[in-house]
Write a protein that binds this DNA or RNA. Sequence first.
DNA 1: TTACTATATGGCAAAATTACCATATAAATA
DNA 2: TATTTATATGGTAATTTTGCCATATAGTAA
Lengths: 98, 98
Amino acid sequence: MKKEILDKYKDRSDVIKALAHPARLFMLDYLSDGEKCVCKFTEELGLDQSTVSKHLAVLKNSGLVDFEKRGLNVYYRLKCPCIMNIFGCIETVNKSEK
Amino acid sequence: MKKEILDKYKDRSDVIKALAHPARLFMLDYLSDGEKCVCKFTEELGLDQSTVSKHLAVLKNSGLVDFEKRGLNVYYRLKCPCIMNIFGCIETVNKSEK
DNA sequence: TTACTATATGGCAAAATTACCATATAAATA
DNA sequence: TATTTATATGGTAATTTTGCCATATAGTAA
């Protein structure tokens, strides 16, 4: 792929890749009403704790979430809540699909 | 992953996966001012024609684009132009990243 | 200090994605 | 009909992603 195009779109696609998993979409949705600690995600998702931890690391590395340690727990929160706005259009796409 | 969560987020993540590649993001951007035929993408991207065709098929299968055959050419177009609105937030995420 | 709890990390195998080459198909033209 | 052109598809190797297990780490409590 031409370098200019890669340079222009790579950072965007990295963020979008971080969104591109059902567990991580759930996580963002779950965070939309406030911070949650890791154990909550593990409980809700029914995935191994290590798997949850890795999904959260993907979100963290993309810049979509942030976290804070308090005692034994780590609390994650949305860094750019505007991300929740994309779901409206995504639903439109799904509904228009035939 | 719990079935209810997978059921709720799988369709959304499928659309987002279709967005999650620099070449496909370019394609959508390139379509934002109107339909283009396949050869145009091949020319602009500098990728093999078969690779371009497969990327377009990913966009088509997700419901993000549609196409029409006219003569020897196939013209692709945006099906849900609202998708272009997500880039503002994505850029915010990239800029906030540290 | 020792034990316990919450989270992160290393390792690995399975699955999915990507890009190319070769080739098939379909429409236009000679 | 035979040829040319634009696009799609099959095959495949390299890469990336995913999810689990085992284990490491850090904070708390006994």
